[in-house]
């Protein structure tokens, strides 16, 4: 059994390795997402005229809009190579379970979006003048949020790439579904920045984790219906 599991995980990481290697060579997705999220932070600074008085209430929203929008940018590209260069056919022909492809793509997306978010976070702390002691806990929240975003985002991205409107359709499908995730992540971020007790906010953590678990389970079950040809 554990032999099978180990083999399964090795197959997943073969797909992750392929995506990471492609990304290291092209540096297309991560660099674009990084620049885009920085631009979002700066644009929010102008639109809301952020000052010491209101920064505490607006900062969590700014951070999460930057992360989700940048994530959307990355997710919409996630299956484009697969579709255009016929990689998906290759993966489907490979003697692996369909769920391997899902988990491989999902973990790849988690790595890319988290990387961008973790680099953006210090910049965010500096421009909004927040203490750096919050970074580890915010990093944890970001990773949990990104897992949920990629979990359902990978499924929808595989669907959106087959549609006529592609990049346009993904946010329309994804945003209404991930609202609980964004809400919970913003609440938790605000709680950390306000220095609130974590026990008071544990119900938001429950929603965040529940979202991750439920939507990864559903996407795992439905993915084979999306890629079957």
């Amino acid at each position: 059994m554990s032999q099978n599991l180990r083999r399964y995980i090795r197959k997943i990481f073969a797909i992750v390795g392929k995506d990471v290697a492609t990304e290291i060579r092209t540096k297309e997705m991560v660099s674009a997402m990084f620049v885009f999220s920085l631009l979002i932070i700066f644009i929010f600074n102008f639109t809301f005229d952020l000052r010491a008085g209101n920064v505490q209430t607006l900062a969590p929203g700014v951070l999460w809009v930057a992360i989700t929008f940048a994530g959307m940018l990355g997710l919409s590209r996630s299956f484009v190579l697969e579709h255009d260069k016929g990689v998906l056919e290759g993966l489907l022909l490979a003697p692996v379970d369909r769920s391997t492809i899902y988990f491989g793509k999902m973990i790849g997306n988690i790595i890319f979006i988290s990387m961008v978010a973790i680099v953006v976070l210090p910049v965010f702390m500096i421009v909004f003048n927040q203490p750096f002691t919050h970074v580890p806990r915010l990093g944890g929240i970001i990773v949990l949020g990104v897992i949920g975003l990629s979990g359902v985002g990978t499924l929808f991205s595989a669907m959106a790439v087959h549609t006529r409107a592609r990049e346009v359709l993904l946010p329309i499908m994804l945003f209404p579904v991930i609202i609980p995730l964004i809400l919970a992540a913003i609440r938790l971020t605000a709680a950390v920045l306000d220095g609130m007790l974590f026990a008071d906010m544990s119900h938001w953590l429950t929603i965040l984790v529940a979202f991750d678990v439920i939507f990864i389970a559903i996407s795992y079950m439905l993915f084979e219906y999306v890629v079957e040809e």
Binding site: V152, P176, I214
Partner: peptide, 22 residues
């Protein structure tokens, strides 16, 4: 038909979570 079914199922799961969070 296949994609629409997948989307309908996923979004039906998001309704209770949305309700709770909101």
């Amino acid at each position: 038909a296949r994609f629409a079914a997948v989307f309908a199922i996923v979004s039906s799961f998001s309704i209770p979570l949305n309700w709770l969070a909101i």
